[in-house]
Simulated assay, not measured.
Amino acid sequence: MGIVEEAHNVKLLGSGEQTIVLAHGFGTDQSVWKHLVPHLVDDNRVILYDNMGAGTTNPDYFDFDRYTTLEGYAYDVIAILEELQVQSCVFVGHSVSAIIGAIASISRPDLFTKIVMISASPRYLNDADYYGGFEQEELDQLFQAMQSNYKAWCSGFAPLAVGGDMESVAVQEFSRTLFNMRPDIALSVAQTIFQSDLRHLLCHVVVPCHIIQSMKDLAVPVVVAEFLHQNLGGESIVEVMSTDGHLPQLSSPDVVIPVLLRHIRYNISV
């Protein structure tokens, strides 16, 4: 196993001609794909990995300078694919990883057959002619809460993000992976994500994109999915599901898994 693979806890599962990469979002790790993986491994080569900073990665490897922009994560994706000698893949990215995959595809479009985006946003802050869902004051309060008492913040944020009560398995699972992050790293990652504005890069993304979105999502309003569709440089398609929450693959797998499988298997033109 190479250095990059080891650092990101890369797992290779299944076999087949097509390679599918599953990339998790903020506060989770590769375990967020546990409901999807069994449906893919019989016919596909599946690559799972953890973003640097996830609770499952070595915090000593987290470079605060490198990861002040999402480009740092995009370079990681390319490094993983190169180390595994992947010629092309279907990249399934949840939340921030959908945008990370899009950034990676700008410099290496050859590596990506298509990108399946779940709960993706190029900008979380509202702007004059753009609704991202958050005002700066709200984000400042969020960062302050993370800084003052991380464990308490996790307990409050998890049910809001997942869209369920504390008793639900999905909320408990997200709480676990969120709390596994080192608090100072979690704050840094959250600031990078929530303060990012990647709208100007969307026109350079020419790889086909499948945009999948929950009807109700604390972090990403439905209009953001339409904004992505209108502004991406290549072909794209949007599907809004009747699900609630930012982690629908965890909270509503019965609804989401068939949708994901359909978008992974079929191209936009079909």
Rank of each mutant, 00 (worst) to 15 (best):
G164E: 01
T19F: 03
Q141Y: 05
A170N: 03
R66Q: 13
V96M: 14
L201D: 11
V96L: 06
G164K: 00
R199S: 08
L36H: 08
A225C: 08
F26R: 03
Q191Y: 01
V270I: 05
E17N: 14
A23I: 05
P258H: 09
L187I: 15
L12R: 15
G16L: 14
Q87R: 10
E167Q: 15
A74H: 02
S97I: 07
T69M: 10
Q144C: 02
T243H: 01
S242R: 13
P253A: 10
D140G: 09
H210T: 09
M181G: 03
G25H: 07
K216I: 06
M117P: 05
F179R: 09
I103E: 04
P253C: 05
S188A: 13
Q87P: 01
E138P: 06
L139A: 14
S214K: 14
A120G: 12
F62P: 07
L232R: 12
Y49I: 09
L13R: 15
P59T: 01
M146K: 10
Q213F: 04
A170S: 06
A158V: 05
L250Q: 09
S242I: 00
P159E: 06
G163E: 04
A54S: 12
Q213I: 09
L247R: 05
M1L: 07
N180R: 12
G53E: 00
A152T: 13
E167D: 14
F157Q: 06
Q85V: 11
V171Q: 08
H8W: 07
P183A: 08
L232F: 11
P221M: 08
I118C: 07
G156I: 11
A120Q: 07
T68R: 12
M241C: 13
Q172W: 00
I118R: 03
P248C: 02
H204P: 01
S148L: 14
P248L: 02
K11S: 11
L250R: 04
T28R: 06
L125M: 15
H39T: 13
Y130D: 03
S105C: 02
F179S: 10
Q172V: 01
V41A: 08
S105F: 09
E173P: 02
I106N: 04
T28V: 07
V10K: 01
Q172E: 06
P208R: 13
H24G: 06
